[in-house]
């Protein structure tokens, strides 16, 4: 939240976790369980996975959505850091120096659009399709990807190759279809592989995943443009939602527009051609 966030003062007592109670082994409960053969530090029951502590839940007193913690971790990736308007200008320059201008340009444009649209409506990326997990024939749990595979094959026949994504409101509908198919096609392949692995061996899962992710991360960025389904935010909706966010977004938009404008930028940096 930073400095602008509301300050919440919280006072803790001397022993908020009541360790006095839990460290006292002469209590009736403790001695009784020990009498029955329980050993401190162990769980109860006959199974091995028995829990040894109670469930701990952190108190949620805001409306932040799921995944905020993940987002924080990722921030070290500077392309992802869209918040600072000035930085992406340098990204462009750096990108040119590295010879990846187009890629970075596209990514920045995409981010800019997303930022603006994101404030007004909500984007969604298509994920898996949930289907009945029971296979009629074999009467067993189908590893939910068999159904997807057949679908995927069908989709590949359609094979459409429009690489660049421009959002024009007119052909929204037809676009939507195409894109969704694409998403399924491309995302699925990865996921299928992944899922299978996950199911097969859980222990190996983590390592492999990490490796994969690293690889993926590079590719993902370019792919992201395509993989966007637009359950479309209608621009006019922005009037309908007269929240504080909307006002702010307009302000940001203006600010950003001025920076994006080459002339304006040149003026800012006092560059004369």
């Amino acid at each position: 939240m930073g400095l602008a966030g509301t300050k919440i003062k919280q006072r803790f007592g001397n022993d908020p976790r009541n360790t006095k109670w839990s460290n006292d082994t002469s209590r009736f409960g403790h001695s009784y369980l020990e009498k029955l053969g329980w050993k401190p530090g162990k769980g109860l029951g006959l199974v091995e996975h028995a829990t040894t502590t109670h469930i701990k839940v952190s108190l949620k007193d805001d409306n932040v959505g799921l995944g905020a913690r993940l987002a924080k971790k990722q921030k070290k990736d500077d392309l992802e850091e869209g918040d600072s308007v000035h930085l992406d200008v340098f990204q462009r320059i750096l990108g040119r120096l590295n010879g990846k201008e187009d890629k970075i340009n596209n990514e920045l444009d995409r981010q800019r659009k997303e930022k603006i649209m994101g404030k007004l409506g909500i984007h969604f990326i298509k994920g898996e399709v949930l289907q009945s997990t029971w296979d009629k024939e074999s009467k067993s749990i189908t590893a939910s990807d068999s159904s997807k595979k057949s679908k995927k094959r069908k989709l590949e026949d359609d094979g459409d190759n429009d690489e660049d994504v421009k959002r024009s409101k007119k052909d929204k509908k037809s676009k939507k279809d195409k894109k969704e198919k694409k998403v399924t096609k491309e995302k699925k392949e990865k996921k299928d592989k992944k899922e299978k692995k996950v199911k097969k061996d859980k222990t190996e899962k983590k390592e492999k995943k990490e490796k994969k992710e690293k690889k993926e991360k590079k590719e993902k960025k370019s792919k992201k443009d395509k993989s966007e389904s637009d359950l479309q935010p209608v621009v006019t909706e922005h009037r309908a939602i007269s929240t504080r966010l909307a006002v702010r977004s307009r302000w940001i938009k203006q600010k950003r527009a001025s920076v994006m404008d080459e002339k304006a930028l040149n003026e800012i940096f006092m560059v004369t051609n």
Partner: peptide, 30 residues
């Protein structure tokens, strides 16, 4: 025994929501 269910397409947001309540309302409207 299988149930009588139809396929459901699942969509995710590209990034986390700063205010899930606000996002929920906007999604419903959308």
């Amino acid at each position: 025994v299988p149930g009588r269910t139809h396929p459901v397409e699942i969509y995710y947001t590209p990034e986390f929501q700063r205010d899930y309540l606000d996002a929920a309302i906007r999604t419903v409207l959308q």
